[in-house]
Deep mutational scan, measured.
Amino acid sequence: MDVFMKGLSKAKEGVVAAAEKTKQGVAEAAGKTKEGVLYVGSKTKEGVVHGVATVAEKTKEQVTNVGGAVVTGVTAVAQKTVEGAGSIAAATGFVKKDQLGKNEEGAPQEGILEDMPVDPDNEAYEMPSEEGYQDYEPEA
């Protein structure tokens, strides 16, 4: 019985440690998101679009440190934060509304985080759909 109880105690310690790591990862992701939003706020009209992409990228980098179902929630929060940063930029006159959601080359930025393969159960990952990809044929 002692062996059984000791095993359960060790398992509990492992769960607590994993929860603490997840909590730490979420806190880091939130900190990076805040950094990115402050970065966007300090940019001029020309830099705002690039700044919004930076927020998304920093958040995406930190999301990889967070495991399990938390990833889905962090990704949703990050996307809403990026959308909010863009709205703030438009409201303050840093950028025109028609410039939001495009990178410096004018290509749409939507789907940055949505296409990231995420499995809350950590069982399997699927690649994003290939609808947006084109076949590449090298020139002879």
Score class of each variant (00 low, 15 high):
Asp2Ser: 04
Val3Arg: 15
Phe4Ile: 03
Met5Val: 12
Lys6His: 04
Leu8Trp: 15
Ser9Phe: 15
Ser9Lys: 13
Ala11Ser: 00
Ala11Lys: 00
Lys12Ala: 06
Lys12Ser: 07
Glu13His: 10
Gly14Trp: 05
Ala18His: 03
Ala18Lys: 03
Ala19Val: 15
Glu20Arg: 02
Glu20Ser: 04
Glu20Ala: 07
Lys23Ala: 04
Lys23Asn: 04
Gln24Arg: 11
Gln24His: 08
Val26Asn: 00
Ala27Lys: 15
Ala29Lys: 05
Ala29Pro: 00
Ala29Arg: 05
Gly31Cys: 10
Lys32Tyr: 15
Lys32Pro: 01
Thr33Arg: 01
Lys34Thr: 05
Lys34Leu: 09
Gly36Trp: 14
Val37Leu: 12
Val37Gln: 00
Val37Gly: 15
Val37Thr: 00
Leu38Glu: 05
Val40Trp: 00
Gly41Tyr: 07
Gly41Glu: 01
Ser42Thr: 07
Ser42Lys: 10
Ser42Pro: 01
Ser42Val: 10
Ser42Gln: 04
Ser42Asn: 08
Lys43Met: 04
Lys43Cys: 10
Lys43Ile: 15
Lys43Ala: 07
Lys43Gly: 01
Glu46Gly: 04
Glu46Asp: 12
Gly47Thr: 08
Gly47Asp: 03
Gly47Gln: 00
Val49Asn: 11
His50Trp: 14
Val52Gly: 02
Val52Glu: 01
Val52Ser: 04
Val52Gln: 01
Ala53Gln: 00
Thr54Asn: 15
Thr54Val: 09
Thr54Arg: 12
Val55Asp: 01
Val55Asn: 01
Ala56Lys: 09
Glu57Gly: 09
Lys58Phe: 02
Thr59Gly: 05
Thr59Phe: 15
Thr59Trp: 15
Glu61His: 07
Glu61Met: 04
Gln62Ala: 09
Val63Met: 02
Val63Gln: 01
Val63Lys: 00
Val63Asp: 02
Val63Ile: 07
Thr64Tyr: 15
Thr64Gln: 04
Asn65Ala: 09
Asn65Lys: 12
Val66Pro: 02
Val66Ala: 06
Val66Arg: 01
Gly68Asn: 15
Gly68Thr: 08
Val70Trp: 04
Val70Phe: 04
Val71Lys: 15
Val71Ser: 04
Val71Ala: 10
Gly73Arg: 08
Val74His: 02
Val74Gly: 03
Thr75Cys: 10
Thr75Gly: 08
Ala76Trp: 02
Ala76Met: 02
Ala76Gln: 10
Ala76Lys: 09
Val77Gln: 02
Ala78Thr: 06
Ala78Ile: 14
Gln79Trp: 15
Gln79Val: 04
Lys80Pro: 03
Lys80Ile: 08
Thr81Pro: 01
Val82Cys: 13
Glu83Trp: 03
Glu83Ala: 08
Glu83Pro: 06
Gly84Pro: 02
Gly86Pro: 03
Ser87Arg: 08
Ser87Glu: 01
Ile88Gln: 05
Ile88Cys: 05
Ile88Val: 06
Ile88Leu: 13
Ala89Lys: 07
Ala91Gln: 10
Thr92Pro: 03
Thr92Leu: 10
Gly93Trp: 13
Gly93Asn: 08
Phe94Pro: 07
Phe94Trp: 08
Phe94Val: 09
Val95Asp: 12
Lys96Glu: 07
Lys96Pro: 14
Lys96Met: 15
Lys97Ala: 12
Asp98Ser: 08
Gln99Lys: 09
Gln99Phe: 11
Gln99Cys: 13
Lys102Ser: 15
Lys102Leu: 15
Lys102Thr: 13
Asn103Met: 11
Asn103Pro: 04
Glu104Ser: 04
Ala107Phe: 14
Ala107Thr: 12
Ala107Gln: 10
Pro108Glu: 15
Pro108Trp: 03
Pro108Lys: 08
Pro108Thr: 09
Glu110Pro: 03
Glu110His: 04
Ile112Asn: 11
Leu113Ala: 10
Leu113Arg: 13
Leu113Ser: 12
Glu114Gln: 00
Asp115Ser: 11
Pro117Cys: 11
Pro117Met: 08
Val118Pro: 05
Val118Asn: 06
Val118Phe: 05
Asp119Ala: 03
Pro120Ile: 12
Asp121His: 12
Asn122Gly: 10
Glu123Asp: 02
Glu123Ser: 13
Ala124Leu: 11
Tyr125Cys: 14
Tyr125Ser: 12
Glu126Met: 10
Glu126Arg: 01
Glu126Gly: 04
Met127His: 14
Ser129Glu: 10
Glu131Trp: 13
Glu131Met: 01
Tyr133Met: 15
Gln134Met: 04
Gln134Thr: 12
Gln134Asp: 13
Gln134Phe: 04
Tyr136Ala: 05
Tyr136Trp: 11
Tyr136Ile: 03
Tyr136Glu: 11
Glu137Met: 10
Glu137Thr: 05
Pro138Thr: 06
Pro138Gln: 12
Glu139Phe: 11
Ala140Thr: 14
Ala140Asp: 15
